[in-house]
Design a protein around this nucleic acid. Sequence first.
DNA 1: TATGAATGAGTCTTCATTCAT
DNA 2: CATGAATGAAGACTCATTCAT
Lengths: 209, 209, 209, 209
Amino acid sequence: MSSSREKITARAPQRERGKRRVAALLEAAVSLFAEKGYDAVTMTEVAARAGAPIGSLYQFFPSKETLADAILDRIGESFDDAFKGIEERGTTIAIPELVDAWLGLLVGFDEERAAAATLIESRQETSARAAELRLSLRRHVARILRARIPKLSSKRAETMAVVVVQLMKAAARSAETDRAVRDGVQNELKHLMCLYLNDKTAVAQTMTP
Amino acid sequence: MSSSREKITARAPQRERGKRRVAALLEAAVSLFAEKGYDAVTMTEVAARAGAPIGSLYQFFPSKETLADAILDRIGESFDDAFKGIEERGTTIAIPELVDAWLGLLVGFDEERAAAATLIESRQETSARAAELRLSLRRHVARILRARIPKLSSKRAETMAVVVVQLMKAAARSAETDRAVRDGVQNELKHLMCLYLNDKTAVAQTMTP
Amino acid sequence: MSSSREKITARAPQRERGKRRVAALLEAAVSLFAEKGYDAVTMTEVAARAGAPIGSLYQFFPSKETLADAILDRIGESFDDAFKGIEERGTTIAIPELVDAWLGLLVGFDEERAAAATLIESRQETSARAAELRLSLRRHVARILRARIPKLSSKRAETMAVVVVQLMKAAARSAETDRAVRDGVQNELKHLMCLYLNDKTAVAQTMTP
Amino acid sequence: MSSSREKITARAPQRERGKRRVAALLEAAVSLFAEKGYDAVTMTEVAARAGAPIGSLYQFFPSKETLADAILDRIGESFDDAFKGIEERGTTIAIPELVDAWLGLLVGFDEERAAAATLIESRQETSARAAELRLSLRRHVARILRARIPKLSSKRAETMAVVVVQLMKAAARSAETDRAVRDGVQNELKHLMCLYLNDKTAVAQTMTP
DNA sequence: TATGAATGAGTCTTCATTCAT
DNA sequence: CATGAATGAAGACTCATTCAT
């Protein structure tokens, strides 16, 4: 009875520890990348901040690139989830709400979004993953845009999506400063984005080709 | 005496040559930074592209950081000039024109603006100069904003300036892709910025506190 | 009692399993060393190919060196057996047969001989066992040589033995290429060795000091 | 006058020093590779033995592989020279002389030949250069063989060449031990090779197909 | 002053070995 | 006794910077 349970829990700590370690490493990487950017961070540094030996870091992330990609992957998944939620609500969702959801993607309490924003930017040319993520963001946004503004050509939707994504990244970047300005800027960006979408929606509805 | 004249003429070509060399080095650095980003560029590479020996590079720019700062400085001056021109025209300048001028700051034919955009972004945390430049940009924009929208509090002007600068950088970043999307995005950003300024101006004029 | 028998039978399979595991590990090591050479093989790799956990590998072979030595030991024993067989047949054995037997020592169907040849070669300076094996080979050959050619001084026998062993290793090395050349080379080496022994025997019989 | 000459000699020491450094590095690498084999040698070790900082080593040899290849190249050139000399003498050269020349290729006063022998052996699979060198050796030997023994088919010449090269390598390997045995073995190998060539020549002349 | 070879601290990464479970 | 995650010393290689010439 208890012995069998013991056995189960016997290895649980090991896996548990492994999970905790991966989490710690990822967290350390996230904060370091967010602080200093990909290139300025050393693997030794990441391991040290996670309180792990360098070998452990490489056990889980066999290269620096893998480490960055892992962060991007995790963010990518959370993006997919978020977009799924947004798209399910279809056209019922009001513009301010939509904008809130979008801006929230790259701006959160944790540093994860900041790290992701940095990595997407700086590794776009070198990491396939970063390029993918950026593309995926654009595609999601473009699809939603076309659903709301039916007359939008796919090319224009793409263009608008680029702009929207840039606005998202702007929000992420401005999250790096002190709270006082940050909140103001965030609000402002939200306002700006609403303005933009309202304009486009109105124009589209007005402009009968 | 002939000796003194000799010295003068002897050094004149040297200075001339020195200037040309500095220009070549700077140009090489600019194109390289624009292409690959600060970290991926080596000093040896810069010297080689400029056709100069590495020692010469260090003669004029005693460190890699100095080199980056020099580029930032030069851009900073051109910004100051541009803003001076804008501010001289006062409130007479129409919003679309103003927006054109602003967006043109970081997006140009030459690679210098691309390099500057990259450097500001990637070295913001490490280089005082990059931070200064960003601050200077903000201040200039804020001043113009306050001149056009008198009721604007200095705090709100600052906030708006941050947004405007982010938009400028977004334009710079989108310049990295192929021409087809680039032009579309650039136009879109211009439109967006006009929308934003028009809105703020109108609101300010309407909102009687 | 049943308990004691239980223990016996309980461990019997374990020992059985242990033997099988050791065999699998050794086999894996042999094939890997033969393929890639000592340095290029990792312990993890050996364990993986044997389908055993790394801990198990270290249970039986406490170091990489031990593992290599074990292979050398096993080959050494098989050499001893082979030489015993040869020596028992005394002088009755004809030269071509003798040569066949010798060349067969390091060239066989299995990879074991190839691995051994590699290990003797590459670890000669670092492993006492490899040196021992080489020495043992020489001694065996020298003894047989002196038995067949009575007038041979021990020093000359040693020298000849070195040559013979080198020829054996040459055969082993040539086994690494494609079958077409290999068979030809092997035949040629056999011929060469016969030539050598015949010459020495004749000379010795002729040369009356 | 003296000034111009001074200028010439002014940089001479620099180049001189560079040459000396390259020589020292190469010599260190040669002796280390000869002693311990390719894998067991570290780049730091090579630099240290040459009395050079690690950076200098990499200045001249951008990778460990390059370093090994450089040694192989140098040996390869000396082989080509030697073979050129041998081939020029055509069929006039007597067998013992030919054998001397061949055995001398991989056995010399310096350690260079020993290092080369080791490198050819251990890096055959990984280094294109090592494989090339081995092939080149075979081809040279085969050509000479066919010139001397006209009836030899190209395939048999190739096979014989393999054997001859193996004999050369055997001589190189036996050079690693103390002088006493070495000289004896070397003589023995020479004798063996003469035996082999004489036999082949005689057989070819006798055997009329 | 100009040059570019020289320098070595610091980077990423591997792998034999150990030990908690 | 079995397991395989954890460890960290050590290796190949880079590059900003210096300094002898």
